[in-house]
Design a protein around this nucleic acid. Structure first.
Lengths: 168, 168
DNA sequence: TTGCGTGCAAAAGGTTTGCATAAAT
DNA sequence: ATTTATGCAAACCTTTTGCACGCAA
């Protein structure tokens, strides 16, 4: 697994929050409680998530550290701008994943259990750049999603996947 | 955009309409005027399109060969099921492209002019299958979109792309 | 005749926005 | 004291659905 090949970014010296502080400061934006809470919840576990998942993890409305849905949307957008998160679409919904401190990677998406499996391939990057070059195309990024069935789902086709399918 | 730089593969024995007739017949579905009209409009030109684009090409409401929006959605879904079209998401919107008679391919997507440039790579397929194999993953398909700037857009950065950006 | 397919209007689902208020600087 | 950020509600946008009528078989 290629380590330091993705972005020539400074080796993660700063925590996500510190890095976000830089971003906020650089833009004259404010360090609010909500932003701190969201950094904490988002970077506590390395996993893919959508807005509803994140909201479900957060305290309910009325509870101490609750953050409203619009603020979650706005803040996740800031995380993306700040380079902390990457965003992509899956079945019409936005899915976010950690970007800061993680190398570029792509996904295998199980159609049955909805699991997202990450993989990293330098070959793919090289291939992508070669194709782009041939088309005089300036690459800024890419997204590859391979769909199919994960091992647990096709090995035991009658059982449900390890993870519940979306929508309960 | 995808002219017929095509990688014409599979000798197409049936026209899209004939093939759709088979599909309809096999499922006991009916050959309606709207389905015929849509096959015609969709396969008249080889190009990517979304529902709004297609509706804009069709006669307006009240005109002879108009087809309603819900029927367009329903019928495009049937085309996908029938293997005539492939569907993917771009910026939250559904985009369709010809499947019947065209080999698997992927896209370069210009962020400025929104152009979609097709490319085909056997290497990519091999790579995909190798990665999947390593993860014991059963591949059913994939989608790769490389984003960046097409030649015309970065060569003449101050001019607009050949195609208007959406929303005009 | 039978019942599938269509069109209309309305619903749904996810995301964004206007605005008054709360909080950061 | 300013001015940005938040929360609420409502708007938005694309896609889907309920239902009465029309048309294919």
């Amino acid at each position: 697994m290629a380590k330091d090949k993705a972005f020539d970014r400074v080796p993660v010296a700063l925590t996500p929050w510190e890095r976000f502080e830089e971003y906020l400061c650089a833009r004259g934006m404010r360090k609010t409680a909500q932003r701190r809470i969201l950094v904490e919840y988002v970077f506590n576990q390395h996993d893919h998530f959508d807005v509803d998942t994140l909201l479900a993890r957060l305290p309910r409305r009325g509870q101490p550290r609750h953050v409203s849905r619009p603020t979650v949307y706005r803040t996740l957008g800031e995380f993306v701008d700040a380079g902390l998160l990457r965003k992509f679409e899956l079945d019409g919904r936005s899915v976010y994943e950690h970007d800061y401190g993680y190398p570029q990677h792509d996904h295998l998406h199980c159609q049955r259990c909805q699991r997202l499996i990450e993989f990293q391939s330098d070959e793919l990057l090289a291939l992508r750049d070669r194709v782009a070059y041939a088309h005089h195309f300036r690459v800024s990024g890419h997204r590859l999603i391979v769909t199919g069935l994960c091992a647990s789902c096709w090995e035991a086709p009658r059982r449900r996947g390890r993870r519940a399918a979306r929508g309960s």
